[in-house]
Nucleic acid binder design. Structure first.
Lengths: 180, 180
DNA sequence: TATTGTTATACTCTATAACTATA
DNA sequence: TATAGTTATAGAGTATAACAATA
């Protein structure tokens, strides 16, 4: 999707609007410019780096995630929060922040949005009046079941080139990298 | 690193300043709050997802990258651009954008900054007067050699938990995920 | 004194529109 | 008409400071 544009009768001020998917580290080699094309840029060294490959693979999976989760209007972080609440009823914001490495100020809006959508509820914490226990509503539970199924299916779709054993090996090796 | 703060004699307006490293998808489980701590949040399902693990691993490697590359003042994207120019003398901005999946408007500032630092030069393109061929300066070549060596060493450091064979397997499997 | 949740806000990253010169 | 490079800028993501209520 090129950035070129055809002349427009009326000149609007300038500025963006939507969003899409892109990055600033990887290489896709196919931003699609036109019919004939064969620049042949050598990126072989970068392709030996684990960080480069891990990031490209992650973004590929995440791009598919975004497409498949679009019907539920869930970004990866939203799904992660929903999942943590689903599997840890009564969990506090502070715990979610620690588990998902989200800074508290940045979680506030997400929780607020999920609450506004009727997916999660806040209940008074049993022992700490500062905190609030988070729970899924029935609608939240229904959505989460669908979303988790989609995430699991998506897993297979994203790794069609891999056997089940290879996927298991890949997951294990990735964990070895980030596990302290 | 908690976000709490001790009362300050004089109330300043409010606002941020520096930067650090954080994210909004993964889980580190150690934002460090204090001495006693054992919230025990279950994230086991998320840890079965390839996207989650790939992203965590990528961020772990990138965090190390940022530390090791700090002396050279190179972000991953700067290193990638420098590497592509080093391995493809005379490459155009358009080609870099395609190879690294950077949008042209976002590359402009990077190239400008690298040029201002005396690391890259622009030369008139031999056949297309619209384009400019990018080349490393001598200083750019020197810096790139150091940076590439650092990146290669960093690879080993980031994968201490893996054997050489495992690292090779991991890289191969990651490529299988994003290679179309 | 320290922590939970919050508001305000700034810096970075990513994305779109539109322009100029050239093809 | 289409492309290379560019400017301007919007919007998302990520970071810090500081506060009130509570521990």
């Amino acid at each position: 999707m090129p950035e070129t544009s055809t002349a427009n009768a009326m000149r609007r001020p300038r500025g963006p609007r939507k969003k899409d998917t892109n990055d600033g580290l990887l290489g896709d080699g196919a931003t699609g410019s036109g019919p004939s094309e064969a620049p042949e840029v050598d990126t072989s060294y970068l392709e030996t780096l684990l960080g480069y490959n891990a990031r490209r693979a992650a973004l590929t999976v995440i791009a598919l995630f975004l497409r498949r989760m679009a019907p539920y209007d869930l970004r990866p972080v939203d799904f992660s929060v929903l999942t943590v609440v689903a599997h840890n009823p009564g969990v506090t914001s502070r715990q979610i922040c620690a588990a998902l490495d989200i800074l508290p100020p940045n979680l506030v809006g997400m929780v607020k949005a999920l609450h506004k959508r009727g997916l999660i509820e806040r209940q008074p914490h049993p022992t700490d009046r500062r905190a609030q226990g988070l729970h899924l509503t029935l609608a939240g539970q229904r959505l989460h079941i669908q979303a988790q199924k989609t995430a699991t299916d998506l897993e297979q779709e994203a790794t069609q080139a891999l056997s089940a054993a290879e996927l298991q090996t890949l997951t294990d090796l990735l964990r070895k990298v980030y596990r302290r």
